[in-house]
């Protein structure tokens, strides 16, 4: 039972990170129907940006941990947003409305480009940061094994929840969100009604990247290490989360993320840690085959 509770907490923490990345996939897919293959690598870039900013504020400027983290979070969101804005502007926008495979290939190229760029400019080795928020609150004890919730896990879940609420408000209640939903339905019509479609799509990419950056900061905090190749697998898992929740649906992405996190930790604890990625990929395949609209997606009626 203690193990179960511990894995439940770990799973929810991990799931929060996946959920944040998944939103980027789901929003971009929703608005331009494209799987942004490079999104996992954008997340990885954001983790590096966060790592470097964290180092700058703590070792060069000697800030205290909490204010440093807050500033790092905001700056990382902005810088990653700029990255994704540039990527969309240069690699995807010129291909919009052309051959369907072209943006996908371009995105795959961008994914390769980003991970290798980081490898070249930051080196191929793991980058560890000193552990932070190491305290753990014990909550359940059984036969000497103590299940607890770490401070950083609390921080991750709280920050995720707050940002999701903010983001939810942005998408549901503001003119930007309305423009986004209009573009999702019908870009041509939205343009005719005076919505700047290009700008809306750009902002969607920026928002997705900002949330990926939050995930990046959390990732650095949680694991304390990042590597240039760390974009692919979390990216695929987050995509699985987006599909599982129903691609295009924001709450779906979060629920999907939490589910994937839980499945991964439970699988590792009770079955086989070696096969945890196999489990994630299998889940992706099974979901797509048997539940292609996901948990919260709308069923698609084939138009004849």
């Amino acid at each position: 039972m203690a193990i179960f509770i511990q894995q439940l907490i770990n799973g929810l923490t991990l799931g929060s990170i996946y959920g944040l990345i998944a939103i980027g996939y789901t929003m971009v897919f929703g608005i331009i129907g494209m799987v942004n293959f490079a999104h996992g690598d954008v997340f990885m870039v954001s983790a590096f940006v966060a790592l470097l900013l964290f180092m700058i504020f703590t070792t060069l400027l000697h800030w205290a941990l909490v204010p440093a983290l807050l500033v790092v979070l905001v700056l990382a969101m902005a810088i990653t947003g700029l990255w994704n804005w540039t990527i969309e502007r240069t690699a995807y926008r010129p291909l919009r409305g052309s051959f369907r495979l072209a943006p996908l290939i371009s995105a795959i190229g961008m994914s390769i480009l980003l991970s290798n760029l980081i490898q070249v400019i930051q080196g191929p080795r793991n980058k560890p940061v000193p552990p932070m928020f190491t305290q753990v609150i014990p909550i359940y004890e059984e036969n000497g094994y103590v299940a607890g919730i770490g401070y950083k896990q609390i921080v991750i879940m709280v920050v995720t929840a707050v940002l999701l609420a903010l983001f939810w408000y942005l998408v549901q209640k503001t003119p930007l969100g309305r423009a986004q939903r209009a573009c999702e339905q019908d870009q041509k019509m939205a343009a005719l009604l005076g919505i700047d479609v290009d700008r809306t799509i750009s902002l969607t990419f920026v928002m997705g990247a900002a949330l990926a950056a939050v995930a990046g900061v959390m990732y650095i905090m949680y694991y304390g290490v990042v590597n240039f190749a760390d974009g692919f697998v979390p990216g695929v898992k987050a995509f699985t989360a987006a599909v599982l929740g129903g691609i295009g649906s924001l709450p779906g992405a979060v629920i999907g993320g939490l589910l994937i996190g839980l499945i991964e930790t439970m699988w590792s604890a009770y079955f086989s840690i070696d096969y945890k990625d196999v489990a994630a990929f299998s889940l992706l395949a099974i979901t797509l085959v048997f539940l292609p609209t996901g948990l919260l997606g709308r069923p698609e009626v084939e138009k004849v």
């Binding site: 690699a91 291909l95 052309s98 290939i105 371009s106 480009l113 290798n116 760029l117 191929p124």
Partner: peptide
């Protein structure tokens, strides 16, 4: 080290040039 970097870059450029 630069091989895959250039490869990824080339993939993007080629798509932009000849989708």
């Amino acid at each position: 080290q630069y091989r895959m970097l250039i490869f990824g870059f080339a993939m993007v450029l080629m798509m932009l040039w000849k989708p």
